[in-house]
Write a protein that binds this DNA or RNA. Structure first.
Length: 565
DNA sequence: ATGTGGGGCGCG
DNA sequence: AAAGCGCGCCCCACAT
């Protein structure tokens, strides 16, 4: 169906229809371009990938099915040829569903299978049945339904954030760059002359101090050679290693590297390429990370350095509400492991401070570093030193991640709360293990195998926590999205945000445990309350009545930097 | 010329 | 101060 026949009557919040399509990123952008917002969907590709890999559904027909169209990543549709002035046919299939909440049921039979489908409307219908069967026959149907619904809702949110864009103050960005880097150079790109003023000056200083007139400070071998020639025991050019060296070239070199990073990653070239009409529009890749976190492609959306966050600026009369979940991963672990003492330490307060108050550790910093060590599998330094105290205080929680690590070391699969399973180690992994078992194996082969085993254990240890935290975050963003839309439209003139968000608070940025809402300033307090309520709801969806809470730090401001305080 | 891999560093 | 997890992107060096 052409986009002007897009589902006018089926997308309002009072409607209960759900799109089932082979890729939200493929179909939703053009609906949004037409100002159409979809309340709910089932993303068949995302669901397929999740369910096929889930240990909860490993006995399903789906788990044994040969790979097919739904195993590949969704490719975006070709842009509509401008000349035709018409949208391509929509291949998604519309299903009628009961008015149940997310996770309470997959769509029923199709009532409208319109248009040309790739992989085909009929294939979509079959796929829905296959997925439904896999869920129904799984060990945890409720969890998998929730996961599929949350992942699909996340895909909608991701497309909407791309559509709305992050409001960007180009002049402020330019000011920051000029401030730090000095005047922009007029020299041709990819030549030393292209370096901004301050970078060029620092480069000259480094060359002088190292007596290396042609040194390129961007070249590792160059820098290493020059440092060695100056009698310094450098083995790399990592900042923290350089910091330990005593030589007049070090300070300008470190300063150069810092500026160079800003210039190359988020400098004027980035601004020209990624900010259009005052909006930064990154591509989010839902489920792009093994653990279920989102990835991004283009513009480094998930690595916006603090230095330039003052350039993220709400439109006139609008504000940014920035919320982040405090100590999300340890709290998720407390819920996952049903560790009541650990949950209690974080109840209504900073979890790390709670650990000090409960005399688990002496200082907040110890709590933080020790907890990170527990989550990541740290074995050295200050982290390892406090780990035993944390293990004594929270045996349930620590036992949970230890068990995940041991399973990984045995080459087994581990699974998040809602059912995302870790990949199995690859063929290379097995080969290294086999080599070590060979009677003639060298010391080297054995230690390589041991190191690899431990590394995979650290991966699976972290997987269950990071992955479940990602599930909490998906539920959070899905709830926020739903609640914001329910607030309705503000009276008065539309803002600069594109329809359908011109008069509505809307999500513009998401970063693992943090989100940003762009809202008319008059609504900032309301938005804040909704974002908090959504976090509480996410906790209930994952952990039911288990008493673990998820406090947020929330602030409103004109810029991202202001709101972060 | 173009692709690939590693070092390095930004984010959580 | 980093380490222990997960990413993306830059530059350079080196392969083709």
């Amino acid at each position: 169906m052409p986009s002007d026949a897009a589902p006018g009557g089926v997308v309002g919040p009072e409607q209960a229809s759900r799109w089932a399509w082979d890729g939200t990123s493929r179909w939703y952008p053009r609906l949004l371009t037409d100002g159409v917002r979809v309340e709910r969907c089932l993303d068949l590709r995302l669901a397929h990938r999740l369910l096929r890999g889930s240990a909860y559904a490993d006995a399903s027909r789906l788990a044994r099915a040969p790979t097919g169209a739904f195993d590949e990543a969704a490719s975006p549709l070709e842009p509509t040829p401008a000349a035709s002035g018409r949208a391509q046919p929509v291949a998604a299939t519309l299903f009628d569903v009961d008015d149940d909440g997310p996770g309470e049921g997959l769509p029923g039979p199709p009532v409208d299978a319109g248009g040309v489908a790739r992989p085909g409307a009929a294939a979509c219908v079959d796929e829905v049945a296959l997925l439904d069967e896999a869920i129904a026959g799984s060990t945890h149907p409720g969890r998998l339904r929730l996961l599929v619904a949350a992942e699909s809702a996340g895909a909608l949110a991701a497309a909407e954030m791309h559509h709305a864009g992050v409001p960007w103050d180009t002049a402020e960005h330019d000011r920051v760059l000029t401030d730090l880097l000095g005047a922009r150079s007029a020299g041709p790109r990819s030549t030393p002359e292209a370096r901004p003023e301050r970078m060029a000056a620092l480069a000259a200083q480094v060359r002088a101090e190292l007596d290396a007139p042609t040194l390129n400070p961007d070249s590792l071998p160059d820098v290493l050679r020059a440092l060695r020639r100056a009698g310094l025991p450098a083995t790399s050019t990592r900042s923290w290693e350089l910091r330990g060296l005593d030589h007049p070239a070090i300070e300008p070199l470190l300063a150069y590297k810092k500026l160079s990073r800003l210039h190359s990653a988020n400098g004027w070239a980035w601004l020209d390429r990624w900010v259009v009409d005052g909006r930064f529009r990154p591509e989010y890749v839902v489920g792009g990370v093994v653990t279920g976190r989102w990835g991004s492609s283009g513009g480094g959306a998930l690595q916006l350095p603090r230095q330039i966050r003052s350039a993220v600026r709400a439109d006139e009369g609008w504000s940014l509400v920035v919320a982040d979940a405090a100590q999300l991963e340890p709290r998720v672990l407390a819920g996952l492991a049903r560790d009541e003492r650990m949950a209690a330490a974080g109840n209504g307060r900073d979890l790390y401070q709670g650990m000090v108050d409960a005399r688990v550790v002496d200082e907040r910093a110890q709590a933080k570093v020790g907890m990170l060590g527990a989550l990541y599998g740290g074995t050295t330094g200050a982290s390892a030193a406090v780990l035993p105290r944390i293990a004594r205080a929270f045996p349930q929680a620590l036992g949970h991640v230890e068990a995940a690590a041991r399973a990984g070391e045995r080459g087994e699969v581990v699974t998040t709360l809602l059912g995302r399973s870790s990949p199995r180690p690859g063929a290379a992994w097995a080969q290294v293990q086999a080599d070590a078992l060979d009677p003639d194996a060298s010391r080297n082969a054995e230690s390589r195998a041991r190191a690899q085993t431990r590394a995979w254990g650290r991966f699976t240890r972290n997987f269950v926590v990071q992955g479940t935290a990602a599930e909490w975050a998906l539920c959070w963003i899905a709830e926020v999205r739903r609640r914001l839309w329910r607030l309705g439209e503000l009276d008065g003139p539309p803002g600069r945000a594109p329809e359908p968000f011109a008069r509505r608070p809307h999500l513009v940025y998401f970063l693992h445990d943090e989100l940003v809402v762009h809202t008319p300033t008059a609504w900032a307090r309301v938005v804040e309350a909704e974002v908090r309520a959504a976090a509480a709801e996410a906790g209930r969806l994952l952990f039911g009545g288990f008493p673990v809470d998820f406090p947020l730090s929330v602030a409103a401001g004109r810029t991202y930097a202001d709101a972060k305080g």
